[in-house]
Nucleic acid binder design. Structure first.
Lengths: 154, 154
DNA sequence: CTCCTTTGATTGACACGTCAATCATCCGCC
DNA sequence: GGCGGATGATTGACGTGTCAATCAAAGGAG
């Protein structure tokens, strides 16, 4: 009775084992991917996300808040990160003509070059560490698991 | 020809979509779990890991480097974290008798209480956000996917 | 016993993330 | 026109993570 009652609330030891392995492994994969990007291209995952969004934008420029939406970041996080990227010359900030409060983030030549140099290595690493590590069925299952977890998160 | 050649190296658009969803979702689950732990118990995931290891240790105390091994952290990371935890009274550092270089990390009464208060809410959240979000088959598949990814990481 | 390397742990500098506060501009409304 | 609340963005404080440098004690080789 105690056992069945507890099972409604707490995971079993086996479920917990799987959970730990799952969450630690996905974290390790993310870390490895980030480390390779950093080592091979000198970019952090955050840099990559920003550069990707800017590369795909009209005129390689975006309003700061639009950029934050595109990559799903809080504005203050983006602001801090842009400060660091600007120091390194990857992006530039310009005043917005149509809204004096606004800022436009512009991809610099350097930033565009850095992104171009990073994309193939990065996608190759994704293929190696994720796609090639799994069977096609497992890749599909991973997609469904993610969808189910997302649904629960709401 | 170009297409088939590229496919050996780069993920397809569909694979990339699944990858992004997968990695972003696991990150979101981790974040949600951490946020709940923080909100309900005032502990970060790092605090929880440290307190768990100390709780399970003989005499609720561990050598610093042993603790780092147990939870898989670098020593400098642990040292910084212990400094913050010590300020909050969750742990205490004592000199080691058998090795004058060494430090022993001791669980305080407060730390033990905080951990006791956190474990059920935390495990409940794991059950809700992971175990209950998935079918039993998906839980098993998650375990296999994690194992396959781990194998590729080496 | 005295070097000299290894080991245990801490520190400082910096990148990254969140939260709350700030500040200027914009815009609806009177 | 001007007031007052929304909006765009930045800032500061602090927790967290990595890397390289530091430093004392331990321990083996001569």
């Amino acid at each position: 009775m105690t056992r069945t009652t507890r099972r409604r609330v707490l995971p079993t030891a086996e479920e917990l084992r799987i959970w730990r392995g799952f969450i630690e492994t996905t974290e390790a994969v993310r870390a490895e991917l980030g480390a390779r990007l950093q080592a091979e291209c000198g970019l952090s995952p955050g840099d990559y996300a920003v550069l990707l969004a800017l590369s795909e934008a009209e005129g390689q420029r975006l309003r700061s808040s639009q950029l934050a939406d595109d990559i799903g970041w809080e504005r203050s996080r983006l602001s801090h990160h842009l400060g660091r990227m600007e120091k390194r010359g990857l992006i530039r900030r310009e005043e917005c003509r149509t809204d004096n409060r606004g800022a436009e983030v512009v991809l610099t030549t350097e930033g565009a070059a850095a992104f171009r140099g990073a994309t193939v290595p990065h996608l190759t690493a994704v293929r190696e560490l994720f796609v090639d590590a799994l069977t096609p069925e497992q890749v599909a299952a991973a997609g469904e698991i993610a969808a189910a977890l997302r649904a629960k998160l709401g």
